[in-house]
Design a binder for these strands. Sequence first.
DNA 1: ACCCAGGTTTCAA
DNA 2: TTGAAACATGGG
Length: 284
Amino acid sequence: MLLNLQDYVDLENTLFSGQCFRWQKDGSWYLGVLKDNVIKVRLRGTSLEYFSYPDSESDLELVINNYFRLSDDIEKIKKTIINIDQRFLKIIEKTNGLRILEQEAWECLISFICSSASNIPRIAKMINDMCELFGEKIKIMKRDFYAFPSPEILSSVTEQDLKSFGSGYRAKFLLTAAKKIAKNDINLSWVKSLNYNKAVDTLVLSLPGVGYKIADCVLLFSLNKMEAFPVDRWVQRAINDLYFTSDQVSVKAARKFGQSKFGKYAGYAQQYLFDYWRVKNRRR
DNA sequence: ACCCAGGTTTCAA
DNA sequence: TTGAAACATGGG
């Protein structure tokens, strides 16, 4: 099925920019799992082409539209950010077609609890191993895919089980999160309905192992809070290089700065910065 | 052996 | 309120 694109989407930049961790490349296609469906997507001219299994393509049209946030007015977002700082002209050019996704919140939360003090390849391996161990298998064309394990499943295993895929000290945080979500102590749909500040506080206060950075990632990448400005080591460096060259900005100061500087599209500005600085300074 | 990675928690000053 | 150390793990 083909979906017309208002603005260019670069699947490579988008799906491997450290906001999601489960897509794999297969020739011109990208393979992933969404809502218990295996999805195959690629760019075809100015359209996004996709196939799904087991559900029909038309059943997943809304899911795909929402996941890739195809309604975002990218031209307006870019203009707004460049208007705030001209240097983003070059930064956005280098990260062209990078889009923010709207993922399933539960998967996003667990993924970013796994992400702490780690790196993208290792996070991806941890999460994929976790899905192979605990997720439902989906067989298609002689290949095995795995759904993301439900809160019920993850809350019913032991901390040792969760350490078996290399989560280390994060295992106890994962288990607590799974239990709270399974018991509906925290409801992520409800968090989504809160305003940004209340949503951040709710996540940080109720989930051990979740601080402002992880909360901001979950809010930006799955709960539609585009004003979130997650600050990791790369974004901290970027903010420091651009705006605080002589000092060393703290994470907290960088976050506050980013939020007030970029306003309602801070999340997009942040993602451009993250991608640009990370690629620019990548060790090889 | 040491440093670093989409951090958070704990504890001391 | 701020900063250092501990927390697990794998790659450079």
